[in-house]
């Protein structure tokens, strides 16, 4: 496992993230134009979605795919309950903040997923392509759990507006990811060969550039929000991903997934959202403080997962396969 950690910490992907983090914390004027960052994010979703779809086209649909999607959905739905009660027991966060934080830890970070996929590719481990579809499924159920928890324990008014769930389900990154997955599925290996020079060869370099920006974002978030985080809350941001990883490992163990697929399922469960869920929380739980949940998911858990989490999850997957 230490070899995996050392390899991860010396990979260009992580080092560019660390550079961005350092630049933001040191108050450098290094920035990435917003439009460029958005375009790169779309590129990454397109590439990862398409490759996943083409992989499924090559290997076919089987019962493990259905099982993985069901397990992913259940994990996303269940993890917020554990997160919420742990936060209630170990921190003084108000109920509404605890429910909002719980939603983030039940949902997923697609960038962590992409980074884990890249780490597996570097190790020569090929995961099942359809884990991309599991990622899309895992985005939303956690939000439902958190809204129920906020309503049940915090008396929050439940936003039952259908518009809320349409906005969450149709957020840009999910549409791009699932859309590209289906395009890859339809066009298959032939389609992949046609656009491989665009989506495979430059992928790692583009990911480095994107993670440089993510490092800047995480660093700025930490600089602005760290005062809001008490030690118990920071500790939660570090142990919760590990706890989710262990639960996910137990849940996916009966499935006939490869070590790569298992590692990605564990990574998805262990990651915390910082794009779709924060926007949903501003709509559904506006009394929850973004400085808490954004700083935790982006400033604490995301750097942890990128540095130590991913190699640990890969080692855990290899241990059970």
């Amino acid at each position: 496992m230490f070899d995996l950690i050392a390899a991860n910490l010396t990979s260009p992907v992580f080092l560019f993230f660390a550079l961005g983090l350092f630049a933001a914390l040191a108050r450098s004027d290094l920035t990435m134009p917003e439009a460029v960052a958005k375009a790169i994010a779309l590129y990454l979703m397109m590439a990862i979605g398409f490759k996943g779809g083409a992989g499924v086209a090559a290997h076919g649909i089987d019962a493990t795919l259905i099982g993985s999607i069901i397990v992913g959905g259940v994990l996303s739905f269940a993890i917020p309950f554990l997160a919420f009660f742990l936060l209630k027991a170990t921190t003084r966060l108000p109920i509404i903040d605890a429910a909002a934080v719980a939603a983030h830890y039940g949902s997923i970070s697609i960038v962590t997923f992409v980074a884990a996929t890249q780490a597996l590719t570097t190790l020569g481990v090929e995961p099942e392509g359809y884990i991309v579809a599991v990622a899309a499924v895992m985005e939303t159920p956690a939000i439902l759990s958190a809204l129920w928890l906020a309503s049940r324990y915090g008396g929050a008014k439940r936003d039952t507006e259908s518009g809320l769930f349409r906005e969450i389900a149709l957020n840009g990154s999910i549409v791009m990811l699932t859309g590209s997955f289906f395009i890859g599925l339809i066009s298959g290996e032939k389609g992949l060969d046609l656009i491989a020079p665009f989506i495979i060869a430059p992928f790692q370099g583009v990911l480095c550039l994107f993670l440089l920006d993510m490092g800047l974002v995480a660093g700025r978030g930490l600089r602005q929000g760290w005062r809001e985080l008490k030690p118990g809350v920071i500790a939660f941001g570090l142990y919760m991903p590990m706890l989710s990883a262990v639960i996910a490992a137990a849940a996916v163990w009966p499935l006939a997934l490869s070590a790569g697929g298992t590692a990605l399922m564990i990574t998805l469960a262990a990651s915390a959202s910082y794009i779709a869920v924060p926007a949903a929380m501003r709509l559904a739980l506006p009394d929850a403080r973004p400085a808490i949940y954004l700083t935790m998911s982006l400033g604490v858990t995301f750097p942890f997962n990128l540095s130590l989490g991913i190699p640990i999850y890969i080692a855990l997957a290899e241990a059970i396969r």
Partner: peptide, 10 residues
């Protein structure tokens, strides 16, 4: 600051 916001929230 708008610069460096990763999503819409904020």
């Amino acid at each position: 600051r708008r610069e460096g916001m990763v999503g819409e929230a904020g």
